[in-house]
Design a protein around this nucleic acid. Structure first.
Lengths: 109, 109
DNA sequence: ATAACAATTGAACAAGTGTTCAATCGTATG
DNA sequence: CATACGATTGAACACTTGTTCAATTGTTAT
């Protein structure tokens, strides 16, 4: 909790549940390692070890992050032999992230 | 740092600086209080006390968050008399956030 | 100047976070 | 079966983070 004031009057633009849900999604992308992992899976299914090598991170660390990303439904796993391939969970997520990347890459205004 | 492996080979989709910059932006929006504050300023310039009342948060807390949001250039202040009004820093930021909200509100797939 | 109002600031604390290391699980191949 | 490989898991750690409270700065009015 935050304030003793019992104030509440403005119409929302986003209800409380959606706000928390969205914040959780943002939080997941708010860590550089995780953001790199997600953008890596954006280009196609990538195995855990592959991601780790690409990014210069330990397999353990990548796996920990993938567990969180899975829980937030940002990526989804698919087993193929010994390896497990991850990709962005759906097109919805992919679009949002691509959008953000585009905006940061433009940066012209 | 993370892994001792000296691996590095894949072409980026987003260079390191931009990645960190984007992650910082995401991190700011990754807290529910802050996300609500930003969406509040999305509808027009809002005074600090006004925001605090709308959201049921203490003025102090809102101010702390606004300092962070200012530092990340997500909002910008404008003094008008005793009060200080905040609004989303630019259209760029506004668009990205509106986009995200729209996506979460749809949620249909 | 004094008082009142709006907002910022700093210290302090609990709770959460990213990372590492070692151990474990799952799947394929000898 | 055993061995090797890929990935997950859990404990432990230092570090960061969100929040509160009290004190302070800045602004307008009396």
């Amino acid at each position: 909790m935050a304030a003793p004031k019992t104030a509440k009057s403005a119409p929302p633009l986003l209800d409380d549940d959606k706000t928390v849900e969205l914040a959780d999604m943002f939080k997941m992308l708010g860590d550089p390692s995780r953001l790199r992992i997600v953008t890596a899976t954006l280009e196609g299914p990538r195995a855990v070890g592959e991601i780790a090598a690409m990014l210069g991170l330990s397999v353990s660390l990548v796996s920990h992050h993938l567990r969180l990303l899975r829980a937030t439904r940002l990526v989804s796993p698919e087993r193929r032999g010994k390896q497990i391939f991850y990709r962005v969970h759906d097109q919805h997520v992919a679009h949002v992230i691509r959008d953000m990347i585009a905006h940061v890459n433009e940066e012209a205004e």
